[in-house]
Design a protein around this nucleic acid. Sequence first.
DNA 1: TTATATGCAAAGCTTTTGCCTGAGT
DNA 2: ACTCAGGCAAAAGCTTTGCATATAA
Lengths: 124, 124
Amino acid sequence: MKYSKQRTEILKVVSNNCNHPNVESIYKEVKEIIPNISLGTVYRNLNTLNENGLIKKISNPHGGDHYDKTLKDHAHIYCINCHNMFDINLNTVDNIKQIIEKQNKCEIISSNIIFTGICNNCKK
Amino acid sequence: MKYSKQRTEILKVVSNNCNHPNVESIYKEVKEIIPNISLGTVYRNLNTLNENGLIKKISNPHGGDHYDKTLKDHAHIYCINCHNMFDINLNTVDNIKQIIEKQNKCEIISSNIIFTGICNNCKK
DNA sequence: TTATATGCAAAGCTTTTGCCTGAGT
DNA sequence: ACTCAGGCAAAAGCTTTGCATATAA
């Protein structure tokens, strides 16, 4: 991977935010710094960064992937009202994995755990 | 919902199989019975059946939705080798939901839990 | 100087939609 | 008869890709 201003900026946007931005909002935000960046570059770099383990892709059942700076496997809640995605501290994910591997005699590589609902903030 | 031969056949394909077919394989299978069925009809009916709670849509992080006859919330494992999806008996899903609701003061409507790995059969 | 990344636009996929015809009640 | 469903093809999204140019090492 050769350095590029574009990729650095994209990584920054994902890393500096606590939300879990999707492609659209990453594109928007990076465009403010590098106005002539193309959407293709954003897609290409998100894939590269994901493949190199610098960010983590979270696929959303409601459409569109989100990207996460936290690399450790963890669960999320997706709010159908504000469309944001939040981390869930579910320290049982690793335990569950092991249980499933034993019970089903299979090998688990990764997990995608998304709860859909209404977040703390939107409930008010 | 008015009766239709097409919808009945689509529901049968999802219900009579223990695998969790995706659109492509549902289309293929129904086509053997109703050769002139169109792909649009399959999509339309899968959505209708899902909305009416007769089947359950499972979105796959690796692309393409799968459809499930089991309506109760449960987890799945997706095998990256044979591309099949299998049920996981995870009787803790309901417990986890409640824990999350309490901890995060949010409301959970549904869950999408998919583990990716290599299934029992492909491991051999 | 050589390899990799970008921008742009075209192509590719999957899914949805419009419109007219056909089937169900 | 009237309404809902299907077939077909076009459109809509989202994502990837090819190609020429630009940038990094």
